[in-house]
Design a binder for these strands. Structure first.
Length: 734
RNA sequence: GCGCGCUUAGCUCAGCUGGUUAGAGCGUCUCGUUUACACCGAGAAGGUCCGGGGUUCGAGUCCUCGAGCGCGCACCA
C-alpha cells in the first residue's frame, strides 16, 4: 500500500474505482470476455423520478448488484438494466405538494390557457432533474448496471409498446369502458384503483332514521346508516326477502325524510327485497343510494333504480340536488342533515359505531365512492384469443413453478390476492402520465382506439370526422407492468431475444400486487412467456422503533450521508447481513459503523499481507506444511459453503460467513500464526507463508467483491499479481 | 370475515430437508500501549429456543391446541 495511514478512507477510492469500472465497459454484457455466454438478466425496478433515493433503494441496489456481480464472476453474460419511472399519480402528488408550498396548485395552473400542457411540462422538467440526481446516487451505491441501456417509462418506444399492448387487449375484449362506482379522492380529484386505498378504523356514529310510509305517515321503517347526508340520493330501502318485521312494507313507498321534489326522478323510495342485505345487521333494512355506494349501485342496477343521481360533487361538496345541504362539505352536511331529521321527528337514535373507512393512500382523506365512466381491464375473463384470463395466466405460471418465489410466504399472499381480484380501473384523471389513446366521435360518441400520431379520420360508425380526445391517462402500473419486455424490446434489436425471460425480479414486497403480479400477467399475455424466473422480495426498512422510514417521520437515514461517513461498502453490508428476504430489516447507524470497522480490518490486514510480500517472487510453488494444507483445505470448504448460499439467495448468510472468516479466521488466527514464519531464516518457510497469505487474501477479495465491491477492487488492483484483470470480471474461486 | 407471518442471549437476527455441549453481530464485564488495525487484541458472563399436548430413538426444527404481536386482503349499511 502506498500510504501508511492506519484507516481506510472510502471517499478517496470509491469514485475512482467506479470510473475504472465504467471505462472498462464491462457493465455492458456485449463487452464481456468470451467466457461469458449464458445470459443472466435483472431489470432494475425503476425508481420514481420524483425525489432522492432512500435506504430502500440502497437495499434494492445492493441486493441486485450482489447477484449481478456474483453471476458475472461466475461467467454469465450479465445484464442489469437501469431505468427511471415517471410514476404518474405519485409524482403528481409530490409535485402538487411543491406547488402548494409555493402558494399555487394544480387547479390554479389548469385554469390557465394551455394549462394542461404547461403543467405537464413543469412536471417533466422536475422529473428530468430528479432522474439525473438518482443516476448519480445509484452510481455512488456501486451499481454495476448497463447505463447504455437505461430507459425511462415515458420514452417514445416504451409508450409505443404500451399502446400496442392496449390495442391487443382492446381487440381481445379485455378492455372495456363502463360506469362504475370508483374510489374517488376529492383532494386529488382522480379515481384510484382498489390497491391505492387504505382502510382506517374510525370511531363514528350510526344513525337510526325513520322513513314514513307515503300513504300512511303513522307507520315507518327504521334504517341504520353512517351516512345520513346521502339520504337525498336514496331510491329504495332494501330488506332481506325473509325479513319478518318489514315483510308488509315490501312494494310500498316511503318518503324521503330529507328532501322533497326531486323532479323527474320522483320522490318515491320503494321498499324492495334483496338477498344482499344482511338481515341481522342494524335494523335489517338498508337504504339504497345507488350513486354513492358500490353495494347500493349493484342492488340499484338489479332493481332498475337511477344509478347516476349524484348528489356529491367531484370536489367532495354536496351539490344543488341536496337542498339545504348544497355547498357543504361531507361532514358539515352530516351534521346539518341530522338537525333536519331531528326537527322532522325522523331520527330514532344515535349510537357510537366503530368501522373501517377507506382513505386515499397518499393524502389519507376519506375516499368518496362516486359513479364515473372509466376504462377497465378484465382480470378474470379469458380474452377472445386465449383460454386463460390474465389472473389465471399468472396463477398457473406460479403454480407450475415457472415463476418461483424466493420466499414461499409471498406465493401464498399472491395466490390469496389473485383469488379475490376484481377488474382493474386504469383511468386516472391526472395530467402526468401516458394518455389513454382513445378518441370519441363528437356525433355518436363511439370510442375509437387510435395509437398513431394525429387523430382518426372518420368515425367507423357514423362517418363523422370530429372527435374529442380522452383526457384520462393510464394508471402508471399499466405501463410499468410491461416493463421487462418493454425495456428489452426498446434496446438493441436482439436484446429481447437474448435476455428475455429475465432471471430475477427483485423488489420490495409492498409492490407485489401493484407491480410483480401485473408484470407476470402482462408478460405472459403479451409475449407468451414469463417475464422472470424468480421473484425475490426484500423487506421494508424500519428504524430502531420498527417504524417505516420516511421523510415525514424524520427518521429516515440518508444513504448519501452515511456513505460519506462510512463508505458505500459498509452501508451495503449493513443492509444485507442479518436480513433474510421478506423480513423487514432494522437499520441503525451503529450497524453501519460496525461494518465500517470491518472495511478497515480488511484494509489493514491487506496492508500487512502486502508489506510482507515485497520480496515474494517464487519460481515455483513453495512446499507447504501440513498445517498450511489443512488451512487451504478448509478454505476450499468455506468457498463451497459461501457459493451454496449465493446460489440459494442467502446473501445474508454468505455475507456473514465471509465476514467471520476474514476477521476471526484469517486475520485473528492465520495471520497471527504466520507472523513468526515470515521472519524465518528458512527461505521456503518464508515463501510458504507468503504464498498462503496471498492465496487466502485473493480468495477472500473475490468472495467479498459482490458485497463490498469498492474496497475489494481497490486492494486487488494493488496486489502483486502478474496478469491481473479487474476483480469485477475475475473468476469466482470455485 | 378470509388469509399470511412472527415469538431463539440486554438489542437486531441466523438456525436449509429433525441428529453431537443452540449460533452471529452489536452491547455488557475483565485484561492488554505484542509497530497491519483501539474503526484493535485476548478472554468472560448471558438463553425454561412464547406456553400446553403429540409424533419420534431423538424437536428450536414436524403436527395440534392456546397466548401475545405484526401484516395483507375484504362492498356489512
Amino acid at each position: 500500500m502506498p500510504d501508511n495511514s492506519s484507516s481506510y478512507n472510502p471517499n478517496e477510492t470509491e469514485e475512482k474505482i467506479y470510473r475504472l469500472w465504467e471505462e472498462s465497459g464491462f457493465f455492458n454484457p456485449d463487452n464481456l470476455p468470451e467466457r461469458h455466454q449464458k445470459p443472466f438478466t435483472i431489470i432494475m425496478p425503476p425508481p420514481n423520478a420524483n425525489g432522492s433515493l432512500h435506504l430502500g433503494h440502497a437495499l434494492t441496489t445492493a441486493t441486485e448488484d450482489i447477484m449481478i456481480r456474483y453471476k458475472r464472476m461466475r461467467g454469465f453474460k450479465t445484464l442489469w438494466l437501469p431505468g427511471a419511472d415517471h410514476a404518474g399519480f405519485e409524482t403528481q402528488v409530490v409535485f402538487e405538494k411543491k406547488l402548494e408550498k409555493e402558494g399555487s396548485s394544480r387547479f390554479e395552473i389548469l385554469k390557465q390557457e394551455g394549462g394542461r400542457e404547461k403543467l405537464y411540462k413543469m412536471i417533466w422538467d422536475f422529473t428530468q432533474t430528479n432522474k439525473s440526481h438518482m443516476e448519480d446516487q445509484i452510481k455512488k451505491l456501486g451499481a454495476s448496471c448497463d447505463w447504455s441501456r437505461e430507459k425511462f417509462t415515458l420514452d417514445p418506444n416504451i409508450i409505443k409498446t404500451v399502446y400496442q399492448t392496449f390495442k391487443k387487449m382492446y381487440d381481445d375484449g379485455l378492455i372495456y369502458r363502463a360506469s362504475r362506482i370508483v374510489n374517488w379522492c376529492p383532494k386529488h380529484q382522480t379515481a384510484l384503483s382498489d390497491l391505492e386505498i387504505n382502510w382506517e378504523e374510525r370511531n363514528d356514529k350510526i344513525y337510526y332514521v325513520k322513513y314514513f310510509l307515503a300513504d300512511n305517515p303513522k307507520e315507518f321503517i327504521i334504517v341504520a346508516t353512517t351516512r345520513p347526508e346521502t339520504i337525498p340520493g336514496d331510491f329504495a330501502i332494501a330488506v332481506h326477502p325473509q325479513n319478518k318485521q318489514y315483510k308488509n312494507f315490501i312494494g310500498k313507498s316511503v318518503t324521503n325524510p330529507l328532501i322533497k321534489n326531486r323532479g323527474k326522478y320522483g320522490d318515491a323510495i320503494k321498499v324492495i327485497s334483496d338477498s344482499a342485505v344482511d338481515k341481522d345487521f342494524g335494523t335489517g333494512a338498508l337504504k339504497i343510494t345507488p350513486a354513492h355506494d358500490s353495494v347500493d349501485f349493484e342492488i340499484g342496477k338489479n332493481h332498475s333504480l337511477p344509478l347516476d343521481y349524484q348528489i356529491i360533487g367531484w370536489d367532495g361538496r354536496m351539490n344543488e340536488l341536496t337542498g339545504e345541504l348544497n355547498g357543504l362539505k361531507i361532514l358539515e352536511a352530516r351534521t346539518k342533515s341530522i338537525e333536519i331529521l331531528e326537527k322532522a321527528g325522523a331520527l330514532e337514535k344515535i349510537e357510537d359505531y366503530k368501522h373501517q373507512v377507506s382513505v386515499c393512500y397518499k393524502c389519507k382523506n376519506t375516499i368518496e365512492p362516486l359513479p364515473r365512466t372509466q376504462w377497465f381491464v378484465k382480470m378474470t375473463e379469458a380474452p377472445k384469443s386465449g383460454k386463460l384470463s390474465l389472473r389465471d395466466l399468472a396463477t398457473e405460471a406460479v403454480k407450475s413453478g415457472k415463476v418461483k418465489f424466493v420466499s414461499k410466504k409471498f406465493e401464498k399472499i399472491f395466490n390469496h390476492w389473485m383469488k379475490n381480484i376484481r377488474d382493474w380501473n386504469i383511468s386516472r384523471q391526472i395530467v402526468w402520465g401516458i394518455p389513454i389513446p382513445i378518441w370519441y366521435c363528437a356525433k355518436c360518441g363511439q370510442d375509437i382506439l387510435f395509437i398513431e400520431n394525429g387523430r382518426p379520420d372518420r368515425c367507423p360508425k357514423c362517418n363523422n370526422n370530429s372527435f374529442k380526445k380522452e383526457s384520462d391517462v393510464f394508471d402508471t402500473w399499466f405501463s410499468s407492468g410491461q416493463w421487462p419486455f418493454a425495456t428489452l424490446q426498446a434496446c438493441r434489436p436482439d436484446d429481447f431475444k437474448r435476455f428475455y425471460p429475465t432471471s430475477i425480479m427483485e423488489t420490495g414486497w409492498d409492490i407485489l400486487f401493484f407491480w410483480v403480479a401485473r408484470m407476470i400477467m402482462f408478460g405472459l399475455y403479451v409475449t407468451g412467456k414469463i417475464p422472470f424466473e424468480h421473484v425475490y422480495l426484500h423487506g421494508l426498512i424500519r428504524d430502531k422503533d420498527r417504524q417505516k422510514m420516511s421523510k415525514s417521520k424524520n427518521n429516515a437515514i440518508d444513504p448519501l450521508g452515511v456513505i460519506d461517513l462510512y463508505g458505500t461498502d459498509a452501508l451495503r453490508l449493513a443492509l444485507i447481513i442479518g436480513n433474510a428476504p421478506g423480513n423487514d430489516p432494522i437499520i441503525s447507524e451503529e450497524k453501519i459503523r460496525g461494518y465500517r470497522n470491518f472495511a478497515n480490518k480488511i484494509w489493514n490486514a491487506s496492508k500487512f499481507v502486502m508489506m510482507n510480500l515485497e520480496d515474494f517472487a517464487p519460481l515455483s510453488k513453495p512446499t507447504l506444511t501440513d498445517g498450511d494444507k489443512k488451512i487451504l483445505k478448509e478454505l476450499g470448504k468455506f468457498i463451497k459453503e459461501v457459493t451454496k448460499d449465493m446460489e440459494n439467495f442467502r446473501f445474508y448468510a454468505a455475507g456473514e460467513k465471509i465476514y467471520h472468516y476474514f476477521w476471526h479466521t484469517f486475520a485473528d488466527k492465520i495471520i497471527e500464526s504466520v507472523k513468526p514464519r515470515l521472519k524465518s531464516a528458512d527461505k521456503n518457510e518464508r515463501l510458504a507463508s507468503q504464498y498462503l497469505l496471498l492465496e487466502i487474501l485473493k480468495t477472500n477479495l473475490k468472495l467479498l467483491h459482490p458485497f463490498m465491491p469498492f474496497i475489494t477492487e481497490e486492494i486487488y488492483q494493488k496486489l502483486p499479481i502478474k496478469e491481473k484483470k479487474l476483480l469485477m470480471i475475475e473468476e469466482w474461486p470455485i
